[in-house]
């Protein structure tokens, strides 16, 4: 009941965290997204799944305003045009980051605060505390003063998630935060996502871990240049739709109330 009333108070525009309508985008005349349309409600944990090259990263970059779409538009919390940076958090797919840079893990996480600081302003004590807290959430607090390049691949991925958390955004766009993590770290991260959702945050997570989406996410978007399906994982994770998305045979195993996806 309480949850519903807060949804009402947010107003009609706020009920939807994210909307994409008729989105076309690509590179050098080659389309990567074709007529992508979907919406995500506020307070939802949504999975973005599709094979390599299906346009997941492109879609996230279009939402962020980093890549200009050919046609169509996106609305973040009801407003189109340039999104409000303070409400959007982002974790890039980590290959784009320069790991040899002489910055510490804490320095990197602090960068998440920069969108809230104006020009000429330096991070304050409060910003540092928020950054440290974000590091604690991904269990990297004791590595805060390490150089970012000295972390393992999975630790680096978690540091990027911590930076997105430090942004204290309402909508988090995370590009494959789960890949390369060990089972414990993955489990911890999913628990963290659930915690954020309880706080009313919205998450859109690109991932290749279908079983995890099936088990823990509210919402799934099946993408292969266009949206093959979107809705509750239990509704869209059918063999027909998954095979249409991945264009190969996948095996769905339902054990009690959990769904596992494997290769056929």
């Amino acid at each position: 009941m309480v949850k519903e009333s807060t949804t009402l108070r947010r107003g009609a525009g706020e009920a939807l965290a994210l909307e994409a309508r008729g989105l076309w985008a690509g590179y050098d005349g080659q389309p990567a997204l074709e007529d992508v349309t979907f919406s995500i409600e506020t307070g939802c944990l949504a999975g973005l799944v599709g094979p390599n090259g299906s346009g997941k990263s492109t879609l996230l970059r279009v939402i962020l305003g980093l890549h200009r779409p050919w046609r169509g538009d996106t609305r973040v919390f009801g407003s189109s045009g340039r999104p409000d940076r303070r409400r959007l958090g982002y974790t890039p797919q980590s290959e784009q980051v320069d790991w040899s840079f002489p910055v510490t893990v804490l320095d990197v996480v602090l960068m998440g605060r920069y969108s809230r600081l104006g020009p000429l302003r330096r991070p304050t004590k409060v910003d540092r505390e928020i950054a440290r807290h974000a590091l604690e959430s991904v269990r990297l607090a004791d590595l805060a003063d390490r150089r970012i390049g000295e972390l393992s691949g999975g630790q680096q991925r978690r540091a990027l998630v911590a930076r997105a958390l430090a942004q204290e955004a309402d909508l988090l766009l995370l590009d494959e935060p789960l890949s390369g993590l060990d089972a414990t770290a993955q489990h911890d991260l999913i628990a963290l996502f659930e915690g954020l959702r309880q706080e009313g945050k919205t998450l859109l997570v690109a991932t290749h871990d279908l079983s995890c989406v099936a088990a823990d996410f509210d919402h799934a978007i099946l993408l292969n240049r266009n949206v093959v399906a979107f809705g509750r994982p239990s509704d869209v994770f059918t063999e027909e739709l998954l095979n249409a998305t991945f264009q190969r045979h996948l095996l769905l195993v339902r054990l009690q109330d959990r769904t596992y996806v494997g290769h056929g």
Binding site: R85, Y90, P92, V97, M111, G112, S115, R122
Partner: peptide, 21 residues
């Protein structure tokens, strides 16, 4: 004066752009 901006853009330009820098 612009250390913060120069650092962020040098380190991770796409993330800096996403942060509105």
């Amino acid at each position: 004066l612009f250390y913060k901006e120069i650092l962020f853009v040098a380190y991770d330009p796409s993330m800096a752009a996403a942060s509105g820098l």
